[in-house]
Simulated assay, not measured.
Amino acid sequence: MCSHQPPCPSADSADREAACVVASRPEQGWSLLCNGAVVFDDTGELLPDGRTVEPNRPAPALV
């Protein structure tokens, strides 16, 4: 999908979030990357093949 030079990371690579944003809907909390992945503001992801990546949230602080 990516036509950038050098090519952006694929949706299967660990650094997939480094791909360029091609569409953004900040009011809805998501962005489409040129590798086909959709990333959400909560850090969750939807990959082009339908797999999901759970949000990477920090552990709650102990009081």
Rank of each mutant, 00 (worst) to 15 (best):
residue 1 M to S: 13
residue 2 C to H: 01
residue 2 C to A: 09
residue 3 S to C: 02
residue 3 S to G: 06
residue 3 S to I: 04
residue 4 H to G: 07
residue 4 H to L: 12
residue 4 H to T: 12
residue 4 H to W: 02
residue 5 Q to S: 02
residue 5 Q to K: 08
residue 5 Q to T: 01
residue 5 Q to N: 01
residue 5 Q to G: 00
residue 5 Q to A: 04
residue 6 P to F: 10
residue 7 P to V: 02
residue 8 C to L: 05
residue 9 P to F: 05
residue 10 S to Q: 07
residue 10 S to K: 09
residue 11 A to P: 06
residue 11 A to I: 06
residue 12 D to R: 13
residue 12 D to W: 09
residue 12 D to V: 00
residue 12 D to K: 12
residue 13 S to M: 08
residue 13 S to T: 04
residue 13 S to E: 10
residue 14 A to D: 12
residue 14 A to M: 05
residue 14 A to V: 08
residue 15 D to C: 11
residue 15 D to Q: 12
residue 16 R to Q: 07
residue 16 R to D: 08
residue 16 R to E: 03
residue 16 R to F: 15
residue 17 E to K: 12
residue 17 E to C: 01
residue 18 A to G: 04
residue 18 A to C: 05
residue 19 A to G: 05
residue 19 A to F: 01
residue 19 A to S: 06
residue 19 A to W: 04
residue 19 A to K: 05
residue 19 A to I: 00
residue 20 C to N: 13
residue 21 V to L: 02
residue 21 V to M: 00
residue 21 V to P: 05
residue 21 V to C: 05
residue 21 V to A: 04
residue 23 A to H: 09
residue 24 S to Y: 03
residue 26 P to F: 09
residue 26 P to M: 10
residue 26 P to I: 05
residue 27 E to A: 11
residue 29 G to K: 00
residue 30 W to L: 06
residue 31 S to K: 15
residue 31 S to T: 10
residue 31 S to D: 14
residue 32 L to I: 02
residue 32 L to E: 12
residue 33 L to V: 06
residue 33 L to P: 03
residue 33 L to R: 04
residue 34 C to F: 04
residue 34 C to R: 10
residue 35 N to K: 05
residue 36 G to A: 03
residue 36 G to Q: 09
residue 36 G to F: 08
residue 38 V to M: 13
residue 38 V to K: 13
residue 38 V to N: 07
residue 38 V to H: 07
residue 39 V to W: 00
residue 40 F to A: 14
residue 40 F to W: 15
residue 40 F to N: 15
residue 40 F to Q: 15
residue 41 D to Q: 11
residue 41 D to M: 09
residue 41 D to R: 10
residue 42 D to T: 01
residue 43 T to R: 03
residue 43 T to H: 02
residue 43 T to M: 00
residue 44 G to M: 03
residue 44 G to W: 01
residue 45 E to S: 07
residue 45 E to N: 00
residue 45 E to I: 13
residue 45 E to Q: 13
residue 45 E to M: 15
residue 46 L to K: 14
residue 48 P to G: 08
residue 49 D to P: 08
residue 50 G to C: 05
residue 50 G to Y: 07
residue 51 R to Y: 01
residue 51 R to Q: 11
residue 51 R to G: 10
residue 53 V to G: 02
residue 53 V to Q: 06
residue 54 E to N: 08
residue 54 E to M: 03
residue 54 E to S: 11
residue 54 E to F: 06
residue 55 P to E: 05
residue 55 P to D: 07
residue 56 N to L: 11
residue 58 P to M: 15
residue 58 P to C: 15
residue 58 P to V: 14
residue 59 A to C: 11
residue 59 A to S: 14
residue 60 P to T: 12
residue 61 A to Q: 12
residue 61 A to G: 11
residue 62 L to H: 06
residue 62 L to K: 11
residue 62 L to M: 10
residue 63 V to H: 12
residue 63 V to Y: 10
